[in-house]
Amino acid sequence: MRIDRPRPGDGRLLWRLARDSGTLDLNSAYSYLLWCRDFAGTSAVARDASGRAVGFVSGYLRPESPGTLLVWQIAVDESVRGLGIAGALLDGLSARVAAEHGLSSLETTISPGNLASERLFASYAARHGATLTREVLFAPEEFPDRGYAPEVLHRIGPLPF
């Protein structure tokens, strides 16, 4: 397994991974192409031995808090789940971002009941000896449509980079 930066040509593959995840909100295919171009420095792709993308993490540095990496989405192909790829993606990306930009904390939002994501980020915090705090970032009534669960912000830091 190799972890590297996404390229614009990876956008369609990342869109498929997000679609097939069964848990992520699927953005437009166009947005994944743009993400791979404009936010490649704060995102990562896991590739198998043949070079095929089997996982990704997308993120960005918060403009008001440039030492904070917000993880937008993370997905791993069903065929390789349970092998630690999601954790390796988070570790590899945060190490790269820390080396290139500096990194003091990591944030993500998780919908209640997404136990796999909660475990992933709690494990990341433990591996890095960082504190994990949680608070509601967006309440259901803030969304334009009905049916949304609250988005809970998971903040991990300070990070030891």
Rank of each mutant, 00 (worst) to 15 (best):
R134E: 15
G147I: 02
Y148A: 12
P144R: 07
L153Y: 10
L153F: 10
R146S: 10
A130T: 13
F138A: 15
H154I: 06
I156G: 08
V136P: 12
T131D: 13
F138S: 14
D145I: 00
E142V: 08
E141I: 05
E141C: 10
F143R: 03
T133M: 04
L153P: 09
E141L: 08
P140W: 03
H154G: 01
E135R: 11
V152G: 02
L137N: 08
A149M: 08
F143W: 12
I156R: 09
A149C: 06
R134K: 15
Y148Q: 12
A130M: 14
G147H: 09
R127Y: 01
R127Q: 07
E151R: 02
E151D: 15
Y148H: 15
R146W: 00
T133H: 01
A130D: 11
G147N: 07
E141H: 11
E151I: 04
E142Q: 15
T131R: 14
E135H: 09
T133Y: 03
R134S: 13
I156S: 10
P140Y: 08
V152Y: 03
I156V: 14
P140K: 00
V136F: 05
R155K: 10
F143A: 09
A139K: 06
Y148T: 07
G147F: 02
V152D: 01
T131Q: 13
R127L: 05
V136I: 15
A139N: 07
R146Q: 10
E142W: 04
E151N: 07
G147P: 11
V152R: 00
E135G: 00
E135P: 00
V152K: 00
H154Q: 09
E142F: 05
G129H: 14
T131W: 02
G147V: 05
F138T: 15
A149F: 05
P150G: 04
E142I: 02
H154P: 05
E141Y: 02
T133F: 03
R127N: 06
L153I: 06
T133K: 02
P150W: 00
A130Q: 09
T133W: 02
I156C: 05
F138D: 12
A130S: 15
F143K: 03
V136K: 10
E135N: 00
P140L: 01
Y148S: 14
Y148N: 11
E142P: 01
L137E: 14
R146H: 06
T131L: 10
F138E: 14
T131Y: 03
E141K: 06
F138G: 02
R146C: 06
A149R: 12
G129M: 13
T133L: 05
H154C: 13
G147T: 08
L137Q: 13
E142M: 15
I156P: 06
